Structure formats: C-alpha cells, structure tokens
Amino acid sequence: MQNNYGRGILYAIIAAVLWGLTGLLSQYLFQKTDVTISWSMGVKSILSGLLILAISYNHDGNHIFSIWHQKKDIASLLVYGLIGLAGVQVTYSLTVLTSDAAIATIIQMLGIIGVIIYSTIFFKQRPRRQEYIAIILSLLGTWLLVTRGHLTELALSKTTVIPGICLIFCSAGLSVLPFNLLRKYSSLIILGWGLLIGGVCFEIIHPFWINPPQPTLIKIIAIILITFVGTALAYLLYLHSMNYINSTVASLLDTFEPLTAALGTVFFFNAHYNWAEYVGSFFILSTVFVLAVGSHHQA
C-alpha cells in the first residue's frame, strides 16, 4: 500500500512538471507567434482526447462506450469535461487576461481549499496533520514564488473577481469531479471523453479553420508537444494518480507546476531568482517529504 501511495505522488508530480513545461511552450507560442489561445484550446483538447480514446479502445474495445449507458455517469462526465477540464483552461486564461499570470496562479492554487471542503463533506475524508502542514507550505511557497516577495503589490481588480472565483471552483473540480467515475471506469476512458467534450465546446467558440496560424516547423513541434505530452499525458498521469492518493494530496502536488515554470524561466528566458523564489521553491519541494511521512499511515 505504501508503494502505491508513493507511485501516486510520483504520477501527480510528473503531471504538474509537464504542465509547467507546457506553460513555457505556450508562453512562447502566444507571445512570439500568431498562435492564439482560443484556436489552440480546441485543437489540443480534441486531438489529445481522440488519441487517448484510441489507446483505450485498443485496450478495452467497445467498453469505452459503456460510460454513455447510464444517465448518472453521462452527467458526471459532462460536468467533469466542461468544468474540470475545459473550465480550468478558460477561467485561468480569463484571470490572466484581467490581471496577470502571477495572480492567476495564486488563485488557482486556492482550489485546494475547495478540495478539502468538498472531500470533508461528501467523502468524509478529513485532512491528516501532514496534509494541513503541506497545505500551508504549498500555498506560502506558491505565493512567494509567483510574487517574487513583493507581497504588498498584489491587487485584484473588479474584473478579476468573477473569473478568479470560477477558477478556484474549476481547479477543485479537476480533482474531485472524476472521483466516482474512477470507481467504475479506467482513467483512459474518463479523460479521453472529457477532453473531447471540452474540445468540441472550444471548437464551437473558435473553429480551427477560422484564422489558423501560419504553419512553421517550430510551431508544429510545439503544438504536438503541448497536445500529446502537456495535455494528454499530463492529465492522464494526474487522473491516474488519484487511484493511489486522495484528491487533496493530488491537488497539493500541483504546486510543482508553478515551480517548474519558474525554473524554466531561469534556464530558457534568462530570468533571475531572488530570495523569495528560493524560499518558495524550498517550501513547495518540502510538501513531498511532508506527504511522504504521511504515507506510513497508509500502509
């Protein structure tokens, strides 16, 4: 049991790291090329969803369609695809648009509070002492990391409040919404259909044939990596991690996403760390050791 707990932690960390690397690629595409957020969302969601469903069909055959046989499962899948998967991407982008990436990242990490409340009420999963400590470390570390220590300079505009609140709920939904589905279906089936549902909604908003970016080799490679590694593989690992750890722990380990993005800016964008970022990185990394101590109680 202890080995499974450690495996779940590893899967969640790898997923968060891949998301962080994907953020760096996305930053390059959106700032340096003609690739837009609205166009890329539908493309990456549909392609990654189809890939995962193809893999799942090769493994489970027609069983991948069984999730559409029960009305309750259909409702859960639609909510997960629209709120948990598509919702996080949309609300995060809107929060960045009305404020900046630092504030959006802090707000997104507050989703862990929603996970704790939801898990306590509906799943009767009260956080253990180690998880309370990890929550404090992860939130404080994320705050230091994305603000670079300028804590008093953060301010939310009125236009940020609504998308920011929605982002908190969507971030929590990403962890808790698929919980019941995972008891009946494989993570491949749930994630594949969820991404496809979100991708179809994005395509309705911005069809891929309208104002597509001019194709170049570097843009094609970046889009492929974002689609199949940063989206399909990352979400699959994160969802699969919840077969071994609870949603609270999985959400805590998502703090490795801003850590990876911050380190990436140092190596790829020639940014420089200050004291707050070093301390914040240390706090985030410490959550792994704190949660590892708790794994002994899982055995």
Score class of each variant (00 low, 15 high):
2 Q>V: 07
2 Q>E: 10
6 G>Q: 13
16 A>K: 10
17 V>D: 05
17 V>S: 03
19 W>C: 07
20 G>T: 08
22 T>Y: 10
22 T>P: 02
27 Q>S: 15
32 K>E: 14
33 T>S: 11
35 V>L: 05
35 V>D: 05
36 T>P: 03
37 I>L: 12
38 S>P: 14
39 W>I: 02
42 G>C: 12
46 I>P: 02
47 L>A: 15
49 G>L: 11
54 A>L: 13
57 Y>P: 00
57 Y>R: 10
62 N>M: 12
63 H>I: 05
63 H>L: 08
65 F>C: 00
65 F>V: 03
67 I>M: 13
68 W>N: 03
68 W>D: 01
71 K>C: 04
71 K>P: 04
74 I>S: 08
76 S>T: 07
78 L>A: 14
79 V>T: 14
79 V>A: 14
79 V>G: 03
80 Y>Q: 09
81 G>E: 06
82 L>P: 01
83 I>E: 11
89 Q>F: 00
93 S>C: 00
94 L>M: 09
95 T>V: 02
101 A>I: 10
102 A>D: 08
102 A>G: 13
104 A>K: 06
111 G>E: 12
111 G>L: 11
113 I>V: 14
114 G>M: 11
120 T>I: 02
121 I>D: 04
124 K>W: 04
126 R>Y: 15
133 I>F: 05
133 I>T: 09
134 A>P: 03
135 I>E: 08
135 I>N: 07
136 I>Y: 06
138 S>P: 02
141 G>H: 09
142 T>C: 10
143 W>Q: 00
145 L>T: 06
148 R>N: 12
148 R>P: 00
149 G>M: 04
149 G>I: 07
150 H>G: 01
152 T>K: 07
152 T>Q: 08
154 L>D: 03
156 L>C: 11
157 S>M: 07
157 S>P: 00
164 G>V: 07
168 I>A: 09
169 F>S: 07
170 C>P: 04
172 A>G: 15
173 G>Y: 10
183 R>F: 14
184 K>H: 11
191 L>S: 13
196 L>C: 15
199 G>D: 05
200 V>H: 08
201 C>D: 01
203 E>D: 12
203 E>F: 09
208 F>Y: 13
211 N>F: 06
213 P>T: 05
225 L>G: 02
227 T>R: 03
229 V>R: 13
230 G>L: 01
232 A>C: 12
234 A>N: 04
241 S>K: 05
243 N>T: 05
246 N>I: 00
247 S>T: 14
249 V>E: 09
252 L>K: 00
252 L>W: 01
252 L>Y: 01
252 L>E: 04
256 F>W: 12
260 T>F: 06
260 T>E: 05
263 L>Y: 12
264 G>E: 02
264 G>Q: 09
268 F>Q: 04
269 F>Q: 11
272 H>L: 12
273 Y>I: 09
273 Y>D: 01
274 N>A: 06
276 A>G: 04
276 A>P: 08
276 A>M: 10
279 V>G: 01
283 F>D: 03
285 L>N: 01
285 L>G: 13
285 L>S: 02
287 T>C: 06
291 L>A: 06
292 A>M: 10
293 V>M: 12
